[in-house]
């Protein structure tokens, strides 16, 4: 018989009576040790999200890949991957797309699923791109004002107003 958690032969046969239902387990010595240790520990703490992410990256990336990945910045909000994985908070809705390759396995780790099946906004999914574009335009406007490029700032202001106006008209 093979271990239920890996491919090694199962030599430990455990019957767990502590849960709601009787649980029969067939494990190799290593997996059995791990299982029994987590059973006995006083306070089993759930792994943190950043902990999960770091482990996932360690397994999949070389140090150099990781360095390059850390330096990647979202074109919309400007957050770097490094900033995200340290703070554990994303910078804007577009990060879910921009860092999708790294986030998707994390989401499966955390939730066991990767597809939303619940409620949707009643008005239907609106033009997400133009909304995201607003985030970028406002950020750019702040930058050009700091650089005292008022001509560009005026252009940006008009673009922002146009998109905001479209959002208002279909309410």
């Amino acid at each position: 018989m093979k271990c239920q958690k890996c491919e090694k032969p199962a030599t430990f046969h455990i019957t767990d009576l502590t849960g709601d239902e009787l649980l029969a387990l067939h494990l190799c010595p290593d997996c059995a040790k791990e299982y029994l240790q987590t059973e006995d520990s006083e306070e089993p703490t759930a792994p943190t999200m950043t902990g999960m992410l770091n482990q996932q990256l360690k397994l999949e990336q070389t140090a150099e890949d990781l360095k390059a990945l850390d330096a990647r910045k979202c074109p919309i909000c400007g957050i770097s991957f490094y900033e995200f994985r340290h703070a554990g908070r994303l910078g804007c809705p577009h990060d879910y797309v921009f860092f999708g390759d790294e986030l998707d396995p994390l989401l499966v780790n955390v939730h066991g699923e990767s597809k939303h099946t619940g409620k949707e906004p009643k008005r239907g999914v609106r033009d997400a791109e133009s909304q995201t574009e607003l985030i970028r335009l406002r950020r750019e406007m702040r930058e050009v004002i700091e650089q005292e490029d008022y001509e560009r700032a005026t252009e940006l202001r008009d673009q922002i107003r146009t998109i905001e106006g479209e959002g208002q008209s279909d309410r």
Binding site: M49, G88, R89, L90, P93, Y96, V97, L103, L106, L107, V110, S114, K115, H116, G118, K119, E120, P121, V125, A128
Partner: peptide, 12 residues
């Protein structure tokens, strides 16, 4: 909101 991921939140 994103059709695949649902309501988008600061923390995944």
């Amino acid at each position: 909101f994103n059709p695949n991921l649902g309501y988008l939140t600061a923390c995944p």
